[in-house]
Design a protein around this nucleic acid. Structure first.
Lengths: 179, 179
DNA sequence: GCAGATCGTCTGTCCAGCAGACGATATTAC
DNA sequence: GTAATATCGTCTGCTGGACAGACGATCTGC
């Protein structure tokens, strides 16, 4: 309170990460609120979106797309199935796999949620002109897509998996920079 | 593998959240790797950046800016102090508070890290033209700043606090949408 | 048919993050 | 002065969620 924490800061020193994190955090909250009739809030919304709009063949595909562990995906889908929002069907082509499809109600609920989410996102992007919002969306998508792999969709899966492992290994706890 | 998981998707259905999450995730990895001589990887980098470039008066201010719990901030800073990167000094104006300042070495290390981070960020934004990258950065910052509060920096702190609590409450586990 | 890989599930473990309490200090009211 | 209340940073304890690993079922290639 004594010193106003300079909200705009001195920096052109790459507030990039901070902006990203802040925006995602805020997005997550608002969307979580808008999607509170779904299990798991934000994550549930993303899952249902992926199920309905993305044509992902299996739980594994869903998991890697959403960067969710396989074992987590299991009980996440359990919750959705309990609510009657999605169904697991045996994949006739591969009986190990389950095809995850939305129920009629799932699609309805998602549609209703999406409307609220859109409103929430717009509210989130107050501070930007409508034209800028569209621009931001476009750039974000393009950047995110250009991120992992440009052409080979299979590599996305592989990378996503291995990346997570590297991540864990990267968390080296001790001896950072000999004092 | 059978069905290529449509990486571009069918949707103009707000891949916004997904893009944000993906980009942040990838950013976090790359920056974590670039900052592996700092404790806590990505988070450590952000902390040190805030300490050096942001003029944050107290641990509490740092914590709320970075959306980190106070108790977490304690041992995070412990680690940094052990490495000789920052120091906690008694604030002469308020002896409850500690002013967190970077050591000479802290500033050096940060400078070196920042160079690598900048490279990593650029690599991350492959897929965007240089002009677009700048544009994305600008839009992101603007959006992130417009997010919480436009004018009153103190509210940021308050909101950050209460938001977290709401968040927890929002995680309602059962009975989402009567089946 | 067999070996190896993959899918989804289950179990057990572990740890980061939080709530809560605490001493120290500041601030305000009386 | 001092009493009451709020804030700062620290510590302790607990808990929820994510992961590793093992498993049965199935597919694929040989």
């Amino acid at each position: 309170m004594t010193t106003p924490p300079t909200p705009s800061g001195t920096a052109e020193h790459s507030r990039f990460g901070w902006s990203l994190a802040t925006l995602l955090h805020e997005w997550s909250e608002r969307v979580g609120a808008a999607a509170d009739d779904l299990p798991q809030g934000t994550r549930g919304y993303q899952l249902l979106t992926a199920v309905v709009h993305g044509d992902l063949p299996s739980q594994a595909a869903l998991a890697s797309t959403l960067r969710i562990d396989r074992t987590v995906m299991t009980y996440l889908l359990d919750a959705f199935e309990e609510c009657g929002l999605v169904e697991r069907r045996l994949d006739p082509a591969d009986r190990r796999a389950r095809r995850v499809v939305a129920t009629e109600r799932g699609r309805e609920v998602l549609a209703a949620t999406e409307a609220r989410v859109a409103a929430a996102e717009d509210e989130l992007l107050t501070g930007l002109e409508p034209a800028q919002r569209a621009q931001l969306r476009t750039l974000l998508e393009q950047a995110a897509r250009g991120t992992g792999t440009q052409e080979d969709p299979c590599r996305t899966v592989i990378e996503a998996t291995t990346r997570v492992q590297e991540d864990g290994a990267g968390q080296r706890p001790p001896s950072p920079a000999s004092r």
